[in-house]
Design a protein around this nucleic acid. Sequence first.
DNA 1: GTTCAGCACTCACTAGAGTGGAGTGCTAAC
DNA 2: GTTAGCACTCCACTCTAGTGAGTGCTGAAC
Lengths: 349, 349
Amino acid sequence: MPTTDDSRIDTAGLDARKAAILNAVVTEYIGSAQPVGSQHVVDAPGVSVSSATVRSDMAALERDGFLAQPHTSAGRIPTDKGYRFFVDHLAGPGSLDSGGRLQVRQFFDHAHGEIEQMLERTSGLLADLTDCTAMVVGPSHESAVIRSVQLVGMGPRQALLVVVLADGAVQKQSIEFGEEVDEGRLSDAAARLAAHSLGLPLTQVRAKVPSTGDRSTDAVTAVGVRALRALGAADGGEHLFVGGSSRMAAAFDAVETVRSVLTILEQQLVVVTLLRDILDTGLSVAIGAEHGVEPLASCAIVVMPVSVDGVETGTIGLLGPTRMNYPLALAAARVVGDRLGERLSEANR
Amino acid sequence: MPTTDDSRIDTAGLDARKAAILNAVVTEYIGSAQPVGSQHVVDAPGVSVSSATVRSDMAALERDGFLAQPHTSAGRIPTDKGYRFFVDHLAGPGSLDSGGRLQVRQFFDHAHGEIEQMLERTSGLLADLTDCTAMVVGPSHESAVIRSVQLVGMGPRQALLVVVLADGAVQKQSIEFGEEVDEGRLSDAAARLAAHSLGLPLTQVRAKVPSTGDRSTDAVTAVGVRALRALGAADGGEHLFVGGSSRMAAAFDAVETVRSVLTILEQQLVVVTLLRDILDTGLSVAIGAEHGVEPLASCAIVVMPVSVDGVETGTIGLLGPTRMNYPLALAAARVVGDRLGERLSEANR
DNA sequence: GTTCAGCACTCACTAGAGTGGAGTGCTAAC
DNA sequence: GTTAGCACTCCACTCTAGTGAGTGCTGAAC
């Protein structure tokens, strides 16, 4: 294959000129969404040869799977592999423009209130910054320990179990009793529940809190324990916030593509799993077929973990067409992810 | 609707045959999305005349603004006014098919857990039933009285104010103190807050809870009061749940239309206001330009209030193309709205 | 005066032919 | 290895009928 001619960086198997050509094709295609011909590439930096030479290089790039032709006598379009090479070896680190940086600063200066609302708005911010659809997976409460357990009477036979976690989240579960229960019994039961569960992470409630074994347990406490355990089990689903889904409609002109992408976005579990899978493979970008979700074959996903107190606990995702602006998306995801993590860490202290 | 042919109701200014023709055109157009020609109408019930006669009636209906032609020598399409007449005078009450009824029953049999999650899923259910995009505005907490006020210490100088309302909602607000505060002072302060606010609706907290006047008030309580008052103010925004937005992509074939509709759906405030406005005008259906939101000109909206304990407090909305299945949408909205209201009323007791 | 068969007309839609242009691959010369 | 030149390809566009669904009008029948 290509000889490393001089002493230049020789980007991973492609000689410098081919890399420059690929770079030019990807860049132009991202901008124009039109197949790129050899003529459009000759003026690009690093390519000081004639269009004929560019053509022969392009043919080689096509043989190697970096480019494709929609049809003979059309220009070239990057393949998934082409984008992959671009992202891994060619794209600069990228950065937000000053307007974007300002927007992020203002956002986090004014962010306040409930965590869910903040995450929701963060997804909107990311969509604005990148023109992509943004997905924000809230920090899971798995590891957060229980700070408070309370039973609030809601009626003669009903109560609400309210559990406050160390990360500021509040979980609740409504409870129905077989008999009328007065405030005294409720607070007794709440105290017993608290004694068993305070300081435990929610996930360990199932393991550590005796289901009914305790013989001193009265009926009210037993129901409370059941609710508490249910809470630990039910929580599993991290909450997903999707912002800017209209951007998908702007990115494609086939309405059927839009429909299938939106359908995926409606399935929270699928999206959350998808983001997690991508992170688990160690990638920060999944392009086209790489993520294996067929309806998203013409999309790319940028993911970024959000660390709260040093633990990767939330996820940010950006969804766009494969011809998205990768450097910008990566930069935005990083900046916002970092700021969000800091913010959540503060709240945690 | 099958016309009772003789002593017929003579539907509001249209003679029976014209009404039958309009009915047939709307019905067929809803099904096919193609302009309807006179030939397609002659077999409809209530129209036992030749196509020539139908044509002359159609011309009259067009003059009166009920029908329109995309171009000469094309069939007719209902106008907004045509749909309006259909909804007000022609469409039967409509009902869910047995599958739909089963789906609703199962849904509410298995619905459980947090109210927000239930509303979210309700929007998905409605979208499934009607093939429309569903909007569910959660019951506002304005009138719900405070059942419990609690301060949970989250750090030496931080606490979380947790307020449980009678409708099962839990509101929270994080608090920062200027000094370290131990558990004792927290619970003292919580008790004082509770004494002032228990039994009050959240909205009246501002009016009824003295801001700082009380001279026995210590610093901790003062901060708590401030947070409590902020909670009452911040709550304003009812939460909106949108389900099945992909249905909009299936309903239109112009991707630009889809984009603009999705953009509207992303603006919670706009949607909530829109639904409220429609309800306030006393309508249950807003067709085309009737609601005044320009990007939704080719959409219709079905709204249905949700009554909790006899008070209209939440809203259900269904968004589809103007050629949506109105009887089905109305039936689904009514059934689901009623069941949802019952369900929330139960939880409230 | 309502209904209707007949008729001329309109106009979107489709298919096919022709054309221009962007782009290619190949080749021979430097 | 590079490149100018050239023949070729094929999309996108235009133009031209031709087709068919649908209309409005008219004059006769009930």
